[in-house]
Nucleic acid binder design. Structure first.
Length: 456
RNA sequence: GUGGGUGUAGCUCAGUGGUAGAGCGCCGGACUGUGGCUCCGGAAGUCGCGGGUUCGAAACCCGUCACCCACCCCA
């Protein structure tokens, strides 16, 4: 092999069938988002590096793809640009930049690639699409509820029926950590540990907390709070269990405390979702943490059983726009991870068979150079009739040409040889039925269209 | 970043120290205006890369790179 031909690490080429699958999923998601009144937005792949740094937290900064300065500064290894890491921070920048031109309540969707210098794994890539929806300008819990509903609609229309949207609240978590004397710089570590309560249980979390340098007193106290996890953490996406868990959480927090307010905020959101398609999907999970540092309120994450990571996530971030504008605008968003959705859909065979449709409905075989103009004329006629037409460019043996059409799944081959050209006719071969008939060239298009219709 | 696995023909893989293989695909022919089946023939690999051991290495040893799985983290 002369040269490596794989795409760069963590990057992928999309062959025709891949693209059709992606476009299928994106089409459904877009239609759902539009149905909720979200408007499209696109932003550049590249941002000024200072726009991105400092908004995602330590881990995030490490994963940003940086672009070296050009020219004489290149040698210094300094970066002044970077590939966007998500679609939320660029949105906040746009809102700050165009505040006067955007509506007071701004609902936008954005389906574009983002880049992370992460280590690739199943369902994880260095270039991947996110499908974001965000509402800016309102603090109402109706915003969170509506986002959850949109996620539910999109996933349901894609064919998922087993997803769960977990919900928690950053202020609740922050209050808890402060109450149990976890120093601010250790909050992220503590949350990562707590986030694993599902997977590794109370003992595992305790170990993890201590490993991460959280004091024994703090760790014990927090675990005690989460102990009786069955009662404090809704175990199923069930409204009554959620309410019960909320009551337990509320009763363990002082009246008037931010933690208690957060619990009631979750309750409000959950009650509103009961009027939406997200009903029966929501599960309160006091141990849900999520990595990004800019969240300030409710946080949500979508899971299915057969994928370790999440299909999507989101939350409220009331202070992010303020970092660019100097004045806060409340905001809340939710993002679907296209690649993970596609991975699961592929494994579960969730794509409709019609996606496998081929490049063309009919192929015109080529006999010799003299017939080329007639072939092109016929192709134009057939296209006029609404058919997708491929003209075989080389006068190879007819058997080989037909074999090609068959191997590509093209159902009809039009044979336009000397005789047909002389008679102004065309012989149309139906590969599946193993039949062929000769028609006037003017009638061939309609005949094939009708035959395709009958095939379904 | 940690641990494990795998790198041999375009693809999937066999080959445990002695001449580099199979299936599929591709090309040609039987069949020069008709596909799927069958038969015959053909092209194609510095065995990931570098070093070492050996009379001899695809195989054994060391290093390195890439990919896969698990952990970590995330969409």
């Amino acid at each position: 092999m002369a040269q490596r031909t794989e795409p760069a690490r963590g990057m992928r080429d999309f062959l025709p069938e891949d693209v059709r699958r992606r476009e299928y999923a994106i089409g459904i998601i877009t239609r759902v988002y539009e149905r909720y009144g979200f408007e499209p937005l696109e932003t550049p792949a590249v941002e000024n590096i200072e726009t991105l740094l400092g908004t995602y937290g330590e881990e995030g900064n490490q994963l940003i793809f940086k672009i070296l300065k050009r020219g004489e500064h290149e040698a210094t290894g300094q970066a002044d640009l970077a590939l966007r890491y998500d679609l939320t921070v660029p949105l906040a920048r746009v809102v700050a930049q165009y505040q006067s031109r955007l509506p007071r309540l701004f609902k936008r969707y954005q389906i574009q690639p983002v880049w992370r210098a992460d280590r690739p794994a199943r369902g994880r890539f260095r270039e991947f699409y996110q499908c974001d929806v965000d509402s800016l300008g309102s603090t109402s819990p109706m915003v969170e509820a509506e986002l959850c509903a949109a996620m539910s609609d999109a996933l349901t229309e894609l064919g998922f029926n087993d997803f769960v949207i977990r919900i928690n609240h950053r202020q609740f978590l922050a209050y808890l950590l402060n109450t149990f004397a976890v120093p601010r710089e250790s909050h992220a570590d503590a949350l990562v540990a707590i986030d694993k309560l599902d997977k590794i249980g109370g003992d595992g979390v305790l170990k993890e907390l201590l490993n991460r340098g959280i004091s024994e007193q703090s760790s014990d106290a927090m675990l005690q709070f989460f102990e009786g996890a069955a009662e404090i953490k809704g175990s199923a996406p069930d409204p009554e269990e959620n309410e019960a868990a909320l009551d337990v959480g509320r009763d363990r927090l002082p009246i008037g405390s931010p933690g208690r307010d957060a619990v009631e905020n979750i309750r409000a959101i959950l009650r509103i979702t009961s009027g939406t398609s997200a009903e029966g999907r929501m599960r309160l999970d006091f141990s849900l943490a999520r990595g990004l540092s800019y969240y300030t309120g409710a946080i949500m994450e979508i899971n299915v059983a057969d994928l370790a990571g999440s299909l999507g996530g989101g939350g409220r971030y009331d202070n992010l726009v303020g970092m660019f504008l100097g004045q806060n605008i409340p905001a809340c968003g939710f993002s679907l991870g296209l690649e993970r959705i596609l991975v699961v859909m592929g494994e579960r065979n969730m794509f409709p068979p019609t996606l496998k449709t081929t490049a063309a409905d009919v192929m015109i075989a080529t006999f010799d150079a003299a017939g080329a103009p007639a072939a092109m004329r016929l192709a134009a006629q057939l296209r006029e009739a609404g058919l997708r037409v491929l003209v075989y460019p080389d006068p190879e043996k007819i058997g080989k040409q037909i074999k090609y059409a068959d191997s590509r799944g093209i159902p009809f081959v039009a044979l336009l040889g000397e005789n047909e050209i002389r008679d102004n006719t065309v012989t149309v071969k139906n590969l599946a039925a193993q039949t062929q008939d000769t028609y006037g060239q003017a009638d061939a298009g309609a005949t094939i269209v009708e035959a395709l219709r009958q095939r379904g």
